[in-house]
Structure formats: C-alpha cells, structure tokens
Simulated scan of single mutants.
Amino acid sequence: MAYLGPTTDAGSAHLQHALFARLHDFGYVEGKNLLLERRFAEGEYDRLEALAAELVAFKPDVLFVSGTQGAIAVSRVTRSIPVVFVTVSYPVAMGLVRSLAYPGTNMTGLVNPSDLLSRARLHLLKDLVPKAKKVAVLHNSQNAVESLMLAAIREANEKLRMSLAQLAVTSEQDLSMAFDALSGMRADGLYVIESPLNFMHRARIIESVSEEYLPAVYGFSEFAEAGGLMSYSISLVEQFRIAADFIDKIFRSAKPAELPVVQPAKFELVINVKTAKALDITIPQSVLQRADRLIE
C-alpha cells in the first residue's frame, strides 16, 4: 500500500491514526501483512507529482491520497493502480471519475462538497457579524480547485452584498504579507479556505487572526480545535476512517471503477466559545443554537 499526503507526517498524524486503526480492525497490520510506503508534500504542490511517481514505482496494490491536488497528481502518473482518495473537491470536473455513482476509472473515495460548504460558511460569517460590509478571503492562488471555491463564495455573496477582498498566498512566507495587508483593509471578517497550505499552518494563521481581533470562519474542525473561532465542515477523521473500507474492498479484489464515490451525510459546526470571549465577540444565539459542538 502507498500513502500520499499533501501536508506533513506530524500534522496529519491523527488522520493517519483513523485510517490505520480502521485497517487494523480489518486485520491489516503494518510490518506484518501490510507493506506501506508514505510520502508527504509538506504543502508544496509542485512536489506532489514526483512523489506520486515514486509511489507508483513501488507498484502498490492500492494507493491512498488525500486532497484534490494530490489526487490530480496521482491521476497524471497512473491510470491503472487502484486509488482511494479523501477530501477531494469536484472529482468529476477534475476528470478523476466519470460520475460519483459509477467512477469508471482507477479512482474512488470520498468527496468534500466544497460548493455547498463555501456558500454555507459565508452565510455563517454574515450571521455571526450581521453588520459586516467587507470580508477577506485567505486562499492559495496556485491551487486551481480554490478558484472554483472562490466562485462559489462570490455566488453566495450575490445575496449578501458584502465586499470581498482576496488574500492570496502560495507559501508559508506569504502569510506575513497577507496579514499585513489584512491589517490595512479594515475587513469585518475573514474566511479561511481549507487548503492544505492553510491547514498545515493553521496555528500560525489562528494566532495572526487573534492579533487582529477579527471574526473568522474556517474549513475543518481542526481549526476550531486549535483556537479558531468557528468551523463548518465534513469530518476529516471520518473520511479517513471510511477510506479504510474502500481499501479493504480493493484488497479483496473490488474495482475502484465500480465502487461509488461517497458524499458526506453530515456536516459539523464547531464554535470555540473560549476564543469568542478572548476576542470579545458575542456569538448570536441563533448561531449558537445551530452548533454541533462548543469548545469552552
């Protein structure tokens, strides 16, 4: 088996645990009956294809990959090795599968419904700050998938009629400049897109946001757990856990082309009440009542 991650080994340790603990439940144990090769891009998208090629050369029975850019990279180097993906946005539009119901390629897995979530998060931010006039959006301009997310955010904003300002970053070094720009733009809130780059540097981003005393909404609960104000997302841990079911089926000779891509049935709104108090932000009762989890 091969494993390709877009971030770091340490930063995704809890997700790897979910995947391999579930595989252990199926009887697969690394070092006994599971031979495993791992590679991590550490947030550098331009490394993904080379790392994917390294893993393909290993000739695994199945290749696991996290994230849209990683899945695209894998698709460029193999159309034969079975691939299981998680947290992939727009898999049909990206040419990874022919349809969700019948993938028809060497790939299958679980999607991240970015269109739906992008719209919902912007509305949540507006509900949190009803008087907001201007919202900044932190995104990676080198990630083609994020251009589709930005389009969904702009579409949601047609009714909200706020001013949207883009903060483009392509590396950790860009974050300082982005937050310097944020300081001068007098934004009423911040939307942090759930890119691997932002995920990997979430602690630094959250610290910078707190210094601005700015309401912010994030993708993935890991941001709220790390001190971010609010997140609305799929469960990454659950996606990694369910991916093990796909891997087990493929080990038992199932074909990815015939395994329907899974869409999440549940989304989770997490609010960090402790952070709200520290930032002197009052969470409207209407938002608190919708929360699935409060961090206090």
Results as ranks from 00 to 15, higher is better:
Ala2Val: 03
Pro6Asn: 06
Thr8Tyr: 12
Asp9Phe: 15
Asp9Ser: 15
Ala10Asp: 08
His14Glu: 14
Gln16Ile: 08
Leu23Gln: 04
Gly27Leu: 06
Tyr28Leu: 08
Tyr28Trp: 14
Val29Glu: 06
Gly31Val: 02
Leu34Asn: 06
Leu35Ala: 10
Glu37Ala: 09
Arg38Cys: 01
Glu42Gly: 02
Glu42Ala: 09
Glu49Phe: 13
Glu49Pro: 00
Ala53Ile: 04
Phe58Leu: 10
Phe58His: 00
Lys59Val: 02
Pro60Asp: 11
Val65Thr: 01
Ser66Asn: 03
Thr68Pro: 02
Ala73Gly: 00
Val74Asn: 00
Arg76Leu: 11
Val77Leu: 06
Ile81Tyr: 01
Ile81Gly: 01
Phe85Asp: 00
Val86Asn: 06
Val86Ile: 10
Val86Trp: 01
Val88Lys: 04
Tyr90Phe: 07
Gly95His: 10
Gly95Lys: 09
Gly95Met: 11
Arg98Asn: 08
Arg98Ser: 15
Arg98Met: 13
Arg98Val: 10
Ser99Val: 05
Ser99Leu: 10
Leu100Cys: 06
Tyr102His: 15
Pro103Glu: 07
Gly104Leu: 14
Asn106Trp: 06
Leu110Asn: 03
Asn112Tyr: 04
Asn112Lys: 04
Asp115Pro: 00
Leu124Asp: 07
Val129Met: 06
Lys133Met: 15
Lys134Thr: 11
Val135Gly: 00
Ala136Thr: 11
His139Glu: 04
Asn140Met: 08
Gln142His: 15
Ala144Gln: 13
Leu150Thr: 06
Ala152Trp: 01
Ile153Met: 11
Ile153Glu: 03
Ile153Lys: 01
Glu155Arg: 11
Met162Gly: 05
Met162Ala: 08
Ser163Ile: 14
Leu164His: 10
Leu164Thr: 08
Val169Thr: 05
Gln173Met: 13
Leu175Cys: 07
Ser176Cys: 14
Met177Glu: 15
Ala178Pro: 05
Phe179Arg: 00
Asp180Thr: 10
Leu182Lys: 05
Ser183Tyr: 10
Met185Val: 11
Leu190Met: 04
Val192Leu: 00
Val192Tyr: 01
Glu194Lys: 10
Ser195Ala: 07
Ser195Pro: 04
His201Arg: 12
Arg202Cys: 04
Ile205Asp: 05
Glu212Leu: 15
Leu214Ile: 10
Phe220Ile: 11
Ser221Phe: 02
Ala224Thr: 03
Gly227Lys: 07
Leu236Phe: 15
Leu236Met: 15
Arg241Phe: 10
Ile242Ala: 06
Ala243Glu: 06
Ala244Glu: 02
Asp245His: 08
Phe246Lys: 04
Ile250Glu: 05
Ser253Leu: 13
Lys255His: 10
Lys255Phe: 13
Val261His: 01
Val262Lys: 03
Gln263Glu: 13
Gln263Ile: 12
Pro264Gln: 06
Glu268Pro: 07
Glu268Ser: 07
Asn272Cys: 12
Val273Asp: 09
Lys277His: 10
Leu279Thr: 09
Asp280Ala: 12
Ile281Lys: 03
Thr282Ile: 11
Gln285Pro: 15
Ser286Arg: 09
Gln289Ala: 14
Gln289Lys: 10
Asp292Met: 00
Leu294Tyr: 02
Glu296Ala: 12
